[in-house]
Computed example of a mutant assay.
Amino acid sequence: MTKNLCDALYHLFLLGCDNKWIWADSICIDQENECEKGMQATAQEVIVWLGEDAADPTEFIWLHTEYLDALHKHYRESGLEKVKRQQPLDPEFVPKLGVSLPGGSWRACWRKYSEVYRR
């Protein structure tokens, strides 16, 4: 097993995936067998590990989890028209969703998000 695969499995464990079946091509497929390498597996979810990143993913994770969850709830409760009337950068909008910005401002949040996303 490579260090990269070990790192990926370790991070999946930290994320709470320790009770799920994990298929890792590098150990589940005979890499010397061309026929086996060409077979496609059916997956419910695919996780791609590109390697360790030194950037702080706090804003990236917040935007993709807590914020989108709160926005989706707001949409379900209020409807599309009300959501469309919101000003996304309005400092009052995020607290209305019941969440708070990591770092305190949209500008700081998006700057850190884009630093992680560009990597």
Rank of each mutant, 00 (worst) to 15 (best):
A108Y: 12
K3V: 03
N19A: 06
V116Y: 15
M39G: 02
S26F: 13
Q31K: 13
K96M: 07
K73A: 14
E36M: 11
V48R: 02
C6L: 03
W106A: 10
E92F: 15
K73D: 10
P91E: 07
Y67N: 03
R119A: 01
R111L: 10
D25W: 11
V46H: 09
V48T: 02
E66N: 08
T2N: 06
G38W: 11
D53I: 05
S78P: 05
K20R: 10
L14Y: 12
C17T: 01
H72K: 12
I27Y: 10
D30L: 13
A70Q: 07
G104S: 08
D90I: 01
K82L: 15
R85E: 14
Q40K: 09
E81T: 11
L5D: 00
K3M: 01
D53V: 03
V116M: 06
L12V: 08
G38D: 02
W49P: 00
R118H: 04
E34V: 03
L71F: 07
F93M: 02
T58K: 15
Y10I: 01
G38T: 01
R107T: 14
K73R: 13
E45V: 07
W62L: 03
L15V: 01
N19Q: 09
A41D: 01
N33R: 14
L9F: 07
A43M: 08
Q86N: 08
W21F: 10
W106N: 11
I22W: 15
E59P: 03
W106C: 11
M1Q: 00
G98E: 04
A43L: 05
A41Q: 10
I27E: 02
R118C: 00
L14K: 15
Y113N: 09
E77K: 14
E92R: 15
H74E: 12
L9A: 11
K96G: 04
Q40S: 10
R85K: 14
R85A: 12
L14V: 03
C6S: 02
K3L: 03
A55K: 13
K73H: 13
F13C: 05
I61Q: 09
Q31R: 12
L15F: 11
S100K: 09
L80Y: 15
I61E: 10
M39K: 15
G38F: 10
D30P: 12
L71W: 06
V83W: 08
N19H: 08
I22Q: 12
Q44E: 10
R85V: 06
R111C: 09
W23R: 00
W110R: 12
V94H: 08
L101K: 15
E34Y: 09
V94N: 05
D69E: 09
E45A: 13
R111T: 14
D7K: 12
E115H: 00
K73W: 12
E66K: 13
A55C: 08
K84D: 12
P91W: 05
D7Y: 13
T58P: 02
I22T: 02
N19K: 05
K37L: 07
S105H: 13
I47E: 01
V116A: 07
S78F: 15
L97C: 07
L89Q: 05
G79D: 13
A41S: 06
K20A: 07
D30C: 14
K73P: 00
G104V: 07
H11R: 15
W21E: 04
P57H: 14
C28S: 10
E45L: 13
W49Y: 07
C35Q: 09
R107L: 15
G103Y: 09
I29M: 07
